Amino acid sequence: MLGVAGLSGCSSSTASSSAKLTIGFSAWPGWIPWQVAADQGLFKKNGLDVELKWFDVYTDSINALATGAIDANSQTLNDTLTSVSGGAKQTVVLVNDNSTGNDKIIAREGINSVGDLKGKKVAVEQGTVDHYLLLLALAEAKLTEKDIELTPMATDAAAAAFVAGKIDAVGAFAPFTTKALERPGSRPIATSAEFPGAIPDHLVFKAEVVKNNPQAVQGMVNTWFETVAWIKANRQQAMDIMSKRGGVSVKEYEDYDSGTSIFTRKQNLDAFTPGTTPQHLNHQARLASDFLMNTGLAKNQPNLDGLFDDTFVKAVKE
C-alpha cells in the first residue's frame, strides 16, 4: 500500500518533549507504518518518548482517545466527528491516507449487486466508515438501511460470521476483507474506490496535547513522513514488519497496496485547504456530519471549528 506516495527530503529536526506520548493504532494499512517508526527508532530520532498501543478492536481505540486514556489515535474522520459530537476535544494534525478500495461490501454467491441486498442480512460495525460506505452504496442503488436486515457486529466478528454463512453480506476494512473473502463464491459488490475521498484516515490528538505540547506533535508528524520515506527505500524489510504487525502474510499485505493511498505532504496540504470537492476535509466533514445526524449516530452536530490543524504538516520540510 506504500508505493503511491514516496516522499523524500523530510524534515529530520528533533522535537523536545519530556512527556511520554501514548499513541493508539490498529489493523489498517494506513496506520501500521507506525510500527516501522518504532522498530527503526524514528520516534527517538525526533526526540520523542512514544508508547505505541495496539488495539485488536478498532472501536476500543476510538473510545480510549475520547475518554482521554491515550494522547492520540489513528482513526477515521467519521469516528473523530462522532467523538467531537459527544463533547470530546480533538484535533486532526495529519492525513495518513485515503481508503481507495480497502473498505468493501462483500456479498455471498448469488448476490451480484448492491441492489440485490434488499431483504438480505448485512453485518457491519455500526457507526464506522464501513457503515457509512454501506449507506452510500445503498443510496446509489436507490435503497436505504430500512431495505436490508442490518446486523450490528464488530468488524472481526462480522467477517467471521460471514465466512460461517450466518449472514448474506458484510462491510469490512482490510485486513478483515481477506478473512471475509475466504467464503467460497464471495465477491465485493461495492468498495471505497467508488467514493473518492469519503474515507480519510488521520492522526488525531487530544486538543490539550496540541495546545500544551506542540513540539511533540510536530515530532510525530515529522516522524510520519520520515517513516514513509524509509518504507519506500526499504520496502521488503518494511513489508515484513507491517505484515507481521497486521497478522497477515507479506503477499496479503502487498495486495492492499492499491487499496490505500498514503498521502504526501502536498496531498495533506490540499486536503486541509478549505474547499468544496471530495479532496477537501471540510467538505467531507460536512457530508459525514450529515450522515451521523441523519442516522441518529450523533445527537449533536459536530463542531468543526478548530478541528483541522495544518500547522504541523506545513512545518515539515520538503
Rank of each mutant, 00 (worst) to 15 (best):
V95G: 05
T100I: 13
V170A: 10
Y132A: 00
A107Q: 06
R108D: 15
V114Q: 02
G110E: 12
A160E: 15
S99K: 00
D168G: 10
G86L: 02
V163G: 14
T128F: 02
T144Y: 12
K179R: 13
E182Y: 01
K120Y: 12
K89S: 10
G127S: 02
K104G: 00
A107V: 06
A158N: 08
I106D: 10
G110L: 10
G119F: 09
K104C: 00
P152Q: 07
D97H: 06
Q126A: 13
V84I: 14
N98L: 12
F173W: 13
M153E: 13
S99P: 00
E145T: 12
F176I: 02
H131T: 04
T155N: 03
A137F: 04
S192D: 02
L143W: 10
T82N: 07
P184K: 14
V124G: 04
P184N: 13
L181Q: 14
G185R: 11
K179D: 14
G86C: 04
A193G: 01
L134R: 00
L136T: 01
K121H: 10
V163M: 13
A157Q: 15
L150S: 04
L133V: 09
K118M: 13
V163I: 14
A172Y: 02
E182C: 01
T178I: 15
G86T: 04
I111D: 08
H131G: 04
K118S: 15
I148L: 13
L134I: 06
E125F: 05
G101D: 02
S83D: 06
R108E: 15
G110A: 07
V114S: 01
K120W: 12
G87T: 06
G115M: 08
G119C: 13
Q126P: 01
V170G: 09
A158M: 09
V84K: 03
L150E: 08
G115T: 07
L117R: 02
N98P: 01
N98I: 09
G101S: 04
F176N: 07
V124L: 05
F176W: 10
V95P: 00
V170Q: 11
I111S: 09
V92H: 03
A158G: 15
K121A: 09
K104Y: 07
P152V: 04
G185S: 12
V93R: 00
T191C: 08
T128Q: 09
A137N: 09
D130M: 05
S113R: 10
G127C: 04
N102H: 08
E145Q: 14
V114N: 02
K104M: 15
A107F: 08
A193E: 13
S99T: 05
T128V: 05
G86A: 05
T178K: 06
K89W: 03
G185K: 06
K104N: 04
G86Q: 10
A161L: 12
G171W: 00
K166D: 15
G110N: 11
G101W: 03
